[in-house]
């Protein structure tokens, strides 16, 4: 059944592409490409009628961000979305440290909906939007 939006769980983490991007320099195209995407489960994507590389809007209590949806290439992970570490992931990550200093980088509830015509902000645009610099 086609749905307008889904409530999922956000995980953030490492991918090898993000690792190479960050070592090459955070201004590089590699870094941008590897951190402005979100891995989604195939069945979840079908529910939203998303195709690979369609843009999606992800919203949490902390804010929202537009990213490129990519089908998770190995196995299933229903109910989860996975964004590589970076400023885009952290625009929506939970700040709750549960009193031990560690924010909840894995496990923020997130609402996902298609946003086919919305652009992905560049690093500079994102920083301007968030910090006014």
């Amino acid at each position: 059944m086609v749905q307008e939006k889904l409530n999922l769980i956000l995980l953030t983490g490492r991918t090898i592409e993000q690792g190479v991007g960050k070592e090459s320099g955070k201004g590089t195209q590699e870094y941008f490409q590897s951190t402005t995407m979100v891995y989604m489960d195939e069945t979840d994507m079908n529910k939203l009628e998303l195709r690979n590389n369609d843009h999606v809007l992800l919203s949490t209590e902390e804010g929202s961000v537009v990213l490129r949806a990519v089908r998770h290439p190995r196995g299933a992970m229903p109910g989860l979305v996975y964004i590589p570490y970076g400023p885009w992931a952290n625009a929506i990550c939970s700040t709750k440290t549960t009193s031990i200093g560690m924010p909840s980088f894995k496990g923020t509830p997130v609402e996902v909906q298609p946003a086919l015509n919305q652009p992905i902000l560049t690093l500079k645009e994102l920083l301007r939007k968030e910090f006014g610099r």
Partner: peptide
């Protein structure tokens, strides 16, 4: 290190 990339946004805000 790059906390503006790696911290949740609201935490980075006060740093900036």
């Amino acid at each position: 290190s790059d906390p503006v990339s790696n911290f949740p946004r609201r935490a980075a805000e006060h740093l900036v």
